[in-house]
Design a protein around this nucleic acid. Structure first.
Lengths: 209, 209
DNA sequence: CGCCGAACTGGCAGTCACTGCCAAACCACT
DNA sequence: AGTGGTTTGGCAGTGACTGCCAGTTCGGCG
């Protein structure tokens, strides 16, 4: 009796449904404990206990303690890449990348959760490291896309494409740091634009001899 | 821990001399094993055994497995900051930062060792993460220095300073990646200049033949 | 020269994230 | 029910890292 007729998005079997439910529970418990007592001070054993699963199962759901933070971190890279490749060919690199950033930013449930997660990310050394590492992989994935848009051969050794991508992430970094420092005041993309202007734009604010 | 001021430069007590000798041994053994069999495949126990010290002592010398890679990684940040603050006030931010990068680059024993270390760094996920994390701390340390040079209040929430610093590191990153991909061919600073030019468009006085 | 206090070293046990293995529980389909 | 494939939980083990407690070594002092 597989009642498959329902909406395409719903999970197929009951098994997967419980699975999803349990994983959501774990995720919520983890985020709660992390914010309550800090990331490093929270052990896997505690999360497993409070979420009602065994440690072993928890590790089967999420391979890593870091993965307990944001389940959609991997989607970040995917959305980014998709949004960029959807841009028309005439659109410049910087604009295309900006569009990608906007799209990826829309993944957050809301500014509340985003700020909470950002703060955790910025305050915990190990989390920061993990995030940066993941980001580096996204950058590598973006490389062919950007190269194509810059009229560079894919096998080219030109560092320009890498530089552009890295700079975009750098500005996003600077923007989000400032955003967190300001307790989430203002729009993140405005800060991003400001950062990019400071780096490439007309030397108004930056004293350039 | 207590640095006696005896003869400036010469090793103070015999104790510290043996200490230095031993730590150099450990460092060499570690780098050798890392390059021979990979970072993750090398255990602390093995390094300690082959270097002739106990694990406990090894951890007292270097607090972390990562610290066994480049003993002078911490000096990187120091040298960078020093070189920047030594620049004349009229020197622009970008130039000052470039000078810092040049100074920091001189820390490497030679292009051979540098390439070896870079390759290890780029190929090992955990090392990459750690390095990025450390770099982020350097960036934070540089913030007041750069803000001052950009005529920004130290307490200002302007993201421009952060953006500039992050971009410099991003370009250094892109340059070193390309450098490694090219097996160390060419000059790293040339690549850096190329990266910065690609990002900022206007080639300022940074190109120095 | 011998001794004492201070710093260093080594070993042991323990914590924590994470993995492999195996038996028990589970759900789906017949 | 029964069977087969999947999932789960517990257990032991690995590897980085820390605290603790002796044992050793160095430096200076009488």
């Amino acid at each position: 009796m597989k009642q498959e007729g329902r909406a395409a998005g719903t999970p197929a079997t009951l098994w997967d449904r419980t699975r999803l439910l349990a994983s959501r529970d774990v995720l919520e418990t983890a985020l709660r404990l992390f914010t309550e007592q800090g990331y490093d001070e929270t052990t896997i054993a505690q999360i497993a206990r409070e979420a009602g699963v065994s440690q072993r199962t928890l590790f089967r759901y999420f391979g890593t303690k870091e993965d307990l933070l944001g389940g959609n971190q991997d989607r970040f890279g995917q959305v980014l890449a998709d949004a960029i490749s959807e841009q028309h060919a005439e659109v410049g690199v910087w604009e295309a990348l900006r569009a990608g950033v906007v799209a990826a930013q829309a993944l957050h449930d809301g500014p509340e959760q985003a700020l909470k997660r950002f703060r955790l990310l910025h305050d915990t050394a190990t989390l920061r490291a993990g995030w940066l590492e993941k980001r580096l992989r996204f950058q590598e994935d973006l490389l062919p896309l950007v190269k194509a848009r810059m009229d560079l051969a894919v096998g080219s050794t030109d560092p320009a494409a890498r530089a552009v991508i890295a700079t975009v992430f750098a500005c996003l970094d600077a923007a989000s740091m400032t955003w967190v420092d300001n307790d989430g005041k203002g729009d993140l993309m405005d800060l991003y634009d400001e950062c990019l202007a400071a780096v490439r734009g007309c030397p108004t604010a930056t004293s350039q001899p």
